[in-house]
Amino acid sequence: MRITILLLACSSLLPGCLVSRSTVNEPISAQSVARLVPGQTTAAETAALLGAPTDVVQLGRRTAWRYDYTIEKRAGLALIVVGLLGTDAHSDRVWVFFDEDDVLTHVGATLASKDAEYALPWSALHRDSE
């Protein structure tokens, strides 16, 4: 009986750990993005390079397409009544702007999905932002 109680007490004190990683959409190739040339690349060529966009925004007679790939990493610890959870999500994003003739005018790219970290709440995340 004592051994059973001891085992139950020990098992209840053992911490529960959580590590998870989830992604949204497909990764964006930096090489493909580098092949986009404002003033030359057309919407059809962009679709052939990057595939279907996640979103299309109408800007008057012009359009902007969004591509994104997001990684979310979570690390957690549960000890009976104490719950600790850290979530860090970053994404690769590309916005391409087309004129009235569906020719690329501007490209904006941020490839930051690799910055996502498994971090508990007290872990340092070195970020310097507005």
């Binding site: 860090d88 930051a112 910055d115 971090a119 709440p121 970020r127």
Partner: peptide, 9 residues
Amino acid sequence: TWRREHRFQ
């Protein structure tokens, strides 16, 4: 609970 959430930059 102690939760921290970072999304994007």
